[in-house]
């Protein structure tokens, strides 16, 4: 079975500090994988490196996305190819209207695919339908991107972006942190709606809670920049019950 995303021997640093110390991970098409692990293990760094953030230096290894060398691509090209990173801390953009931002992003990706751009009316119709499906308030479109949004609203706005951009591979970086049960359900629904043979996701989380709504095919434990254990959904339950210490001790 060919992997949609194939990470091999990936190492990365911030400044002189190595964070990822050799990641090997393969996510087949149609699968959802969870990444769990203690704070500071490199989970967020992995998401940023996949999305192409420039202040993270890739020092070795390869990332292949549907046969393409993803590390050679600019962040916008990765997005056009179908990658989406839901940020753990979504960025505020004062003075940038949310609807305008979403439409610009959607049209940039449509343009890259050789599709016609949506005008304001077509876009609003599409966005409102998606928001209704995700039980989101349409008011969110009129505000500036993430400015004055609560933590939950910011995360929901990430899910809305994902719903509109329809990526083939989503990385959710602790999208569940700080969310109440209702918001958690919206996040899970956002991902589940995209599920299919041509959609994969990497869900970074601290908690079993999200995985109850979003059952993963595989669970990986990341510690000190390496994947130290992989297993089925039962691994998440085991970690929830016993904590990371047993797994860490075993790997040491």
């Amino acid at each position: 079975m060919t992997a949609m995303l194939d990470i091999s021997g990936l190492t990365a640093s911030i400044g002189d500090k190595p964070i990822l110390k050799g990641i090997d991970l393969s996510v087949p098409a149609g699968e959802i994988h969870a990444i769990m692990g203690p704070n500071g293990s490199g989970k967020s760094t992995l998401g940023y490196v996949l999305a192409g953030r420039e202040d993270y230096e890739v020092t070795g290894g390869t990332v292949t996305f549907e046969g393409q060398d993803m590390l050679a691509m600019a962040p916008e090209a990765r997005a056009a190819a179908g990658l989406f990173l839901a940020f753990q801390a979504p960025i505020e953009l004062p003075g940038v209207n949310n609807a305008n931002f979403l439409r610009t992003a959607l049209n940039a990706i449509r343009r890259a695919h050789g599709e016609d751009e949506l005008d304001a009316v077509q876009f609003l119709k599409f966005a409102r339908a998606e928001m209704k499906r995700l039980s989101m308030d349409g008011e969110m479109l009129k505000r500036n991107v993430n400015v004055g949004f609560s933590g939950g609203e910011k995360k929901r706005n990430e899910v809305l972006q994902m719903a509109l951009l329809r990526p083939r591979f989503a990385v959710l970086d602790e999208t569940d942190s700080g969310l109440d049960i209702d918001a958690l359900r919206i996040v899970a629904e956002g991902v589940n709606a995209l599920r299919g043979p041509n959609f994969s996701a990497l869900v970074v989380t601290h908690h079993q809670r999200l995985l109850d709504h979003l059952v993963p095919h595989r669970v990986h434990v990341l510690a000190q920049g390496r994947i130290i254990r992989s297993g089925g959904p039962e691994l998440a339950k085991e970690l929830e019950k016993n904590g990371y210490s047993a797994v860490l001790a075993e790997a040491a």
Partner: peptide, 28 residues
């Protein structure tokens, strides 16, 4: 730089992302 990266991660090309942020500064 974080704002530029956020826009680019959504598929918006670098030059367009910069233009959006300057226009936002001016709109304010």
């Amino acid at each position: 730089a974080e704002q530029i990266f956020y826009l680019r991660s959504r598929g918006i090309p670098d030059s367009e992302a910069r233009a959006m942020l300057v226009r936002a500064f001016l709109a304010e």
